[in-house]
Computed example of a mutant assay.
Amino acid sequence: MTETTPSAAAGKAGGAATLVASALSNQLGAATASLAFPVIGPVGVVAVRQLVAAAVLLPLVRPRLRDLAWRQWWPVLLLAVSFGTMNLGLYASVQRIGLGLAVTLEFLGPLAVALASSRHKTSALCAVAAAAGVVAITNPEASTDFVGIGFGLVAACSWAAYILLNRVVGQRTLGIQGTAAATGVSATLFLPVAVVIFLSQPVDGFTVLCAVAAGILASVLPYVADLVALRRVPASLFGILMSINPVFAAIIGALALRQELAPVQWVGIGLIVAANAGVLLLRRSR
């Protein structure tokens, strides 16, 4: 039986605090991005976000693109596409149904991956809880914005694909070169979009500042923080702490963006967060 040293415990606590800060930064970035929607829309914000992420990540990692073979390139290209559709789906959903609900729906992606990889019978209860949570937060009725919900589910599917593709890329490329290459590809695809949007209409400095801040808060800082935290905490704890993202999104949406939620929707968010944490705890126990 191994004992946890004070330094190891302190490192684990520091890693956990870093993850919480990462989640907070991510959701503040999404809230900041929404302020630019009236001028350049979700597509414009995503384009700027991808360009900012590439501008920071590529010089740091310097991936050797010429050394990549086709068996390495194809998952990198798919990863770039999934990254773009994930952000587009999320921001389009945020614009229509609000930050808290959109982020919670997107969170169904990693939850689905966790459920699919779990062989514990109790995971079925977690799946039922998650389904009940979806019904609670979407509250299906005639006035429900099903398009916004659909965008959130597109983001969820893209996030699930992103997780699975990241595993393949990580196995076939050295370090984080594959992820950096995918970021560069995604930025290249969105560059013409950004040029068209910024040339076709007047864009004020506040909008640009919000879009750039979203790239830093929601891409650069969380990416660096997650890399630091993963060296100090186990992957299972990482996943559990990431469950706080929908909670932060709902709170920030309510306080900063005046996107108030009904009590039943708060219950739905809690069910989905609890389902994710439950699945990961079951896997950890095994």
Rank of each mutant, 00 (worst) to 15 (best):
F206N: 15
S34L: 00
S243T: 10
D67C: 11
P202G: 08
L19Y: 08
L57G: 02
A127F: 08
N26K: 05
C157G: 14
A218H: 00
G148K: 10
A262F: 07
V56D: 04
G268H: 06
V264F: 08
V193Q: 05
S82Y: 04
F190L: 15
D67P: 12
A10H: 09
L191I: 03
V264A: 09
A131C: 11
I137G: 04
A102P: 02
I272V: 13
S200M: 09
R258K: 09
L35W: 04
R64T: 08
R231M: 08
A181Y: 12
L237I: 13
T18I: 06
F107N: 02
V196T: 09
T85R: 12
G15Y: 04
G152H: 01
E106K: 00
G11D: 14
A211E: 06
T2S: 15
I244Y: 01
L115C: 04
V81K: 10
A130K: 01
I137R: 07
E3L: 15
A235F: 13
C157R: 04
F190Q: 00
M86V: 03
I272T: 09
A277G: 15
V203E: 03
R232Q: 12
Q95G: 08
Q177W: 06
N245Q: 15
G109C: 04
A114C: 01
S117P: 05
S22Y: 00
A211T: 02
T138V: 14
R119F: 12
V203S: 01
I251R: 09
L105C: 02
V103M: 01
T2E: 13
A54P: 00
F238V: 10
V45H: 02
R49T: 00
S143W: 07
S200N: 14
G268Q: 06
S285A: 14
M1A: 14
I216Y: 00
V273C: 11
L68D: 08
M1P: 13
A277S: 13
A102W: 02
V169P: 01
A10T: 11
L88W: 14
T2I: 14
W74H: 14
V154P: 01
V61R: 05
L79F: 15
A250N: 10
L280G: 10
V76H: 05
G44W: 08
V147K: 08
G148C: 06
V273S: 06
R286M: 12
L227T: 09
A21P: 01
A54G: 08
A33R: 00
L221Y: 10
L115Y: 12
A218P: 03
P192V: 07
P263I: 03
L237T: 14
G11T: 09
S186A: 15
Q95T: 00
V267F: 09
R283M: 15
P42H: 03
A112L: 13
V228H: 14
Q50G: 06
A275D: 07
V128Y: 02
T104I: 02
G14Q: 13
L164R: 08
L282E: 10
Q201L: 07
P192H: 01
R284F: 12
G15V: 13
A9T: 14
P42D: 11
A194Y: 12
S285Y: 10
E141M: 11
V94Q: 08
A47V: 02
I97Y: 12
I252D: 02
D67I: 05
V169H: 04
S7E: 15
A47S: 07
